[in-house]
Nucleic acid binder design. Structure first.
Lengths: 346, 346
DNA sequence: TTCTCATCTGAAACCGGTTTCAGATACTGT
DNA sequence: ACAGTATCTGAAACCGGTTTCAGATGAGAA
């Protein structure tokens, strides 16, 4: 079967290429008669315009890129990226966008690729994710290039150095930290510790939420009850080890993975959760349910996050400056067994 | 900054577009002098050719597609797809390929998208994955279309109805099943059960490996010791419940997730692993290490799988018929605690 | 010296669409 | 009936590259 081109269709329909193009793109001023004539031929032949030629002529590829700047490890240690990707593809599909995936396995690779992405004009826009685990991400190396080249992009995760003209979406980490801590306070715990993480906005914000909840209840912050980890299970374990001598009766841990480590530390010294120490985690990953006891945790709707990112990017590509440029998505507290709420009610 | 085009470069270098194009593509018959002249300008300006125009003219986009035909759930319940994606992007990056990701959230969506993928000529080729969990995948709806349209593709996972002209790569599931079972036999277990899965080639092959190992040791297969699951934790749990009355002293479970379920079932009735019943799993997912006891399991190198798939696809795109068309990747037994090997040695 | 032939280069066609521009037609209002 | 305007359509230019083709140049052979 030979390839169908717009010229072939034009000939078959007895009109010009221009007319076929106009029908294809739903232009207004076309007589009903011709339009139907052309549409009939298109339906009959199953013609679909060549995407590449279209891109060249219209300077729009309908391809957006998803940038994940990290190698092996983190990408699949937790379902964050898969969930995100899922949300993104869903909305992309609905908008007839093609998603190009860029995973960088080294900094050099990222550098080179971004450069060529920007220069070769294949993409209409980019969604940038940041490494959630990296402790120092003060400077995203790509952003200046993108801005200089006028490449529309949206960031997932609040950039550390907040610039007003950068479009981003994030979960409301401060709210999440607040909800978790508030919940523990409401349950009557007195010495509420936390394991957070330094040097990244998510950790900072969750800690800020923790402090706000304490403040609200006129509980002075006790820095001996604050430990830091790096989102790994080990760091949660070590953090809890450090906190245990302070005899907290509850702990808000800024990630489920760390919470699992903390849980292990607690159980190792013979204490019971939630009876002796209550735990609230963060993320609501599958292991949270599999743990014993099941983890009370803060759930972020990562899929929605991804979907909204695509929509915001589309606005930016269309040049719609009126669109929403900064979004903080609400989080939700999922109450299970590790916080003791269930037991207290019973 | 105005966009650089090949014409601009040609003018700057004082040559024709054609010459610049030839330099760009490393054509042979160009005088050293002109070549250097052009290269100097290119380096100076940082010019990079427009990918879209190039695609249109050369009928090659350097974009390949990765098709994942499934919705939400399975994509992130296990790290299979993330690992696969990782391997694929790695090799893609090395070959200056762009990877387009297609995740279908419904059958209809998949159908429509494939159609337009094939027709609009944006992609050079496709990597097709199959739903590992789906029980009935006898017919892949895309394959006939792809063949008809001459779209190069490679399948990941052996197609059920093996056609010689289809390029595919898979892990050697039969070997994996064999290794696991053989190991249990060598450890002296007598009543070795298995939980496999029906209606998909991976399950079939793992079971075949199990049978081969038994055969080799002249152990007659006892169908009462064979249960089936669907790769979920629950199905592993149920499968084991069914097997327990048969009093097996070991069980080969065709997925780690199911093995975890089986483990729970065993522990629930007060039996100890590996003392009372040994377990060998499959996949070597992170939970395998977190389990107590740690799971002995069969590891598949999914990343390599993805990488090789890209290379095979490249061969196919280049029209290289001599390339390898069917690959079965070796698996490896990872010995930990749940099989009892460690204890027996001590 | 002259004729071939290989090597190198540029003009122009081409890939398959979109978009500008101007001409044709039909529809107003006077 | 006629100018003026709105609506519709096609020819041709254009997007930014690649590739064909033929002409120019220079080296080697006769």
């Amino acid at each position: 079967m030979k390839k169908l081109t717009i010229s072939a269709i034009a000939e078959l329909a007895g009109v010009s290429k221009a007319t076929v193009s106009r029908v294809l793109n739903g232009y207004p001023h076309i007589s009903q008669e011709l339009r139907e004539q052309v549409e009939a031929i298109i339906a009959e032949t199953g013609y679909q315009p060549n995407q590449v030629a279209r891109s060249l002529a219209s300077d729009r590829s309908n391809i957006i890129g998803l940038v994940i700047p990290k190698g092996t490890d983190a990408v699949f240690l937790d379902p964050y990226f898969p969930a995100l990707t899922n949300g993104i593809t869903q909305v992309s599909n609905n908008n007839s966008l093609t998603l190009a995936l860029f995973i960088f396995h080294s900094e050099q690779e990222g550098h080179d690729t971004i450069k060529s992405i920007v220069n070769t004009g294949l993409l209409d826009g980019l969604i940038l994710t940041t490494d959630r685990v990296t402790l120092d991400r003060t400077t995203d190396p790509f952003v200046p290039q993108l801005i200089e080249r006028d490449m529309p992009f949206v960031m997932i995760g609040r950039p550390d150095n907040l610039q007003d003209d950068i479009i981003f979406i994030d979960t409301d980490n401060a709210e999440g930290g607040y909800l978790a801590t508030r919940h523990l306070i409401d349950l009557g715990y007195q010495r509420i510790a936390t394991i957070s993480s330094k040097h990244n906005s998510a950790g900072d914000d969750r800690l800020a939420g923790y402090r706000k909840a304490l403040d609200e209840s006129d509980i002075a912050i006790d820095w001996a009850l604050v430990a830091y980890g790096d989102y790994t299970l080990e760091s949660g374990y070590k953090g809890m080890k450090k906190l245990l001598p302070q005899q907290p009766d509850a702990v808000f841990v800024a990630s489920d993975t760390m919470a699992l480590g903390a849980l292990r530390a607690i159980q190792e010294v013979g204490l019971k959760v939630p009876h002796d120490i209550a735990i609230v985690g963060y993320d609501d990953l599958p292991p949270a349910i599999q743990a014993t006891p099941q983890l009370t945790t803060v759930r972020q709707d990562v899929e929605t996050l991804g979907g909204m990112a695509v929509e915001m990017l589309l606005d930016a590509i269309r040049g719609d400056k009126s669109g929403i440029r900064h979004v903080f998505l609400s989080s939700k507290l999922i109450i299970r067994d590790s916080c003791g709420a269930v037991q207290k009610q019973a």
